[in-house]
Design a protein around this nucleic acid. Sequence first.
DNA 1: GAGTTATATGCAATTGACAGAATATTCAAA
DNA 2: TTTGAATATTCTGTCAATTGCATATAACTC
Lengths: 131, 131
Amino acid sequence: MDCVAVYKCLCDSVRLRILNLLSRGPLCVCHVQQILDEPQPKISKQLAFMKRNGLIESTRHMNWTIYRIPEQPNPLLAENLKCLQELAFQDRVYKKDLKRFEKTDTAAACIPAVPQPRSTSSNSSGSACSC
Amino acid sequence: MDCVAVYKCLCDSVRLRILNLLSRGPLCVCHVQQILDEPQPKISKQLAFMKRNGLIESTRHMNWTIYRIPEQPNPLLAENLKCLQELAFQDRVYKKDLKRFEKTDTAAACIPAVPQPRSTSSNSSGSACSC
DNA sequence: GAGTTATATGCAATTGACAGAATATTCAAA
DNA sequence: TTTGAATATTCTGTCAATTGCATATAACTC
């Protein structure tokens, strides 16, 4: 396993904040961007960086790219997320992020548990993302 | 706690190899250098980097600088060393390093459990490091 | 003091990551 | 087909980290 690649992803505060969010569930780029209040290209690039290094994966759902921590995450990542839960994610920034995450929760239109084909999305017009 | 600083130290293969060694006990620079078979300034700088970031500490003993993982290591570091033990340190490079570490063991003249004042060192001339 | 060993530091060149701003691409709705 | 929203990429400049090489410093021996 490429431990260095994992640690390279973990050694940036923005990426840690993103992982804190993704620990709670999949998210589209615009939600992450909105919650962290950072420019879109910045978020997009950090997500791409982590995907390139095998920490997260993405699926396209209509207009949105949904990023998530894999079902079977990299073991080293999994362990560190557990640690961080106690050692860091209790800090103000991360808690604040999660608060905003929960507020954004209702916007889950673009992050269904299982990406639904357009025809099955019954709520709303089926296309709007509340971002 | 500055998690980013910890991860910054962990995301380099040479530093991981050094930490693998230091997990077994304190070491002077020349031993690390000898075991890893890397240039002295390189090792010295990487050790300084980790010390600067609070992962390891050093004491001067006669001519040698002994580096070690603190008694109370950074918790995030401690957890990761535990992980790495299973996930990475089983790999060839690390095992090879440990083999050389054990061979170097007899050279422990410059790495006493408790740094001894010169007068108390009874074996050998008390000054030579077998490096 | 001179010499030797162990370690640290300085310098130059290279590389990788990062940020910001602009632009390109993708996809769906109208 | 045009428009607009979401996302990705490109470009430029900057900065930190890494390396090799040379040299400085520290501490001990003689």
